[in-house]
Design a protein around this nucleic acid. Structure first.
Lengths: 195, 195
DNA sequence: ATTATCTATAGATCTATAGATAATGC
DNA sequence: ATTATCTATAGATCTATAGATAATGC
């Protein structure tokens, strides 16, 4: 039953990948270690050879999810150099993202749960959050680096809040209205004169 | 052990009040029915005389929490008639709200969990969400009612996302930076020319 | 007689661990 | 010999229910 070191390292990555998806889909408490291992094609007991606890995996999966998001955003921005913020808002606040939390933004999928996690998880989240703010900072207006960073934080907040609001109601028309309103605000509402 | 009808109605309210607080503090999955009943000064088994399930209470507690928030916002806005948005942002993005999710905004405390709830809960949330959007609509600029409503949705999103971001990191300086940046953006960044 | 609440528990979880197994890698 | 994985389970939950109890309210 033993596998090679290389295979074991792949298994570890598979578990983290499965967790990054299933945590975003079902919540940290919505999927058990046993079911996560099943998703990764392994059995329950093997988990603790790879990680010391479920919480350790929560931190690693969160880091992984945020890295994917930062990469995706760089790509979206890079493909629309003339109107990057509009492209980002359109992509983030799309119907596709709305209905696919499992591959989407960690903050929209698990944001309010993160507040209740131990520092080990929050530190991984902070690293990813800073990287994402950096990405946005490059495409918002602003004279100084500090001003652009402030704008980037505000844009990120608006995007996340918009998706949280849209996902928290069962009325599809209202969800769509929210996504459109926030998208228009992000695309139009950012201006260089903010203090 | 039986109590009067009046006392029983009070008990019901106490359970909902305890739930509205403890759910926001610990998450829907973070507190058990037994512990909620203990908070309300009652025993576990009595719960099912008041509610058919924990999920039913989740909907009622969410409605209750959102009503409190709508009332609080009306008050904050009413006390600062010359700069209502600035007052709202300052109150919402305060250190006090940051460290007291249990009495604060449901969306910041449980927003990402709401997406995974059944329609019974989401419908209660929608009602509260619309009421809150109405409150903000009265103080944002905009020529038409529709334009003001769009602005209100964007402001609400920005506030919620700002608090989620601030609460998801363990570094106090970063949290403070986020709250200030979003607060400035809400106070300065709303303008009447949004489509 | 009715019913709000209590005690006790069934049944179904879930995390983490212990010990067995079998393939790797020195 | 080492170790990645497996099976099995301990121990601690949690939701919901059953049946007893005792005060209300017709």
């Amino acid at each position: 039953m033993k596998v090679s070191k290389q295979k074991a390292a792949e298994h570890r990555k598979q578990i983290i990948a499965a967790a990054a998806n299933k945590f975003r889909e079902k919540g940290f408490d919505g999927i058990s270690v046993a079911d996560l291992m099943k998703e990764a094609g392994l059995t329950h007991g093997g988990f603790y050879g790879h990680f010391s606890s479920k919480q350790e995996l929560m931190g690693l999966a969160s880091r992984q999810a945020l890295r994917e998001t930062a990469n995706k955003w760089e790509k979206v921005i890079g493909e629309a150099p003339d109107k990057p913020l509009e492209a980002l808002a359109k992509s983030y606040l799309s119907a596709r993202h709305h209905s696919h939390p499992e591959t989407g933004c960690l903050f929209a999928a698990l944001g309010s749960d993160l507040a209740r996690q131990p520092n080990s998880v929050k530190e991984a989240v902070m690293e990813g959050q800073l990287a994402i703010i950096d990405v946005i900072s490059r495409v918002v207006p602003g004279k100084t680096k500090a001003a652009r960073r402030k704008q980037a934080v505000a844009v990120l907040a608006e995007l996340i809040g918009g998706m949280v609001l849209a996902r928290s109601v069962s009325d599809a028309a209202l969800s769509e209205e929210i996504l459109k309103a926030v998208s228009a605000s992000v695309a139009n509402g950012v201006h260089a004169d903010a203090s």
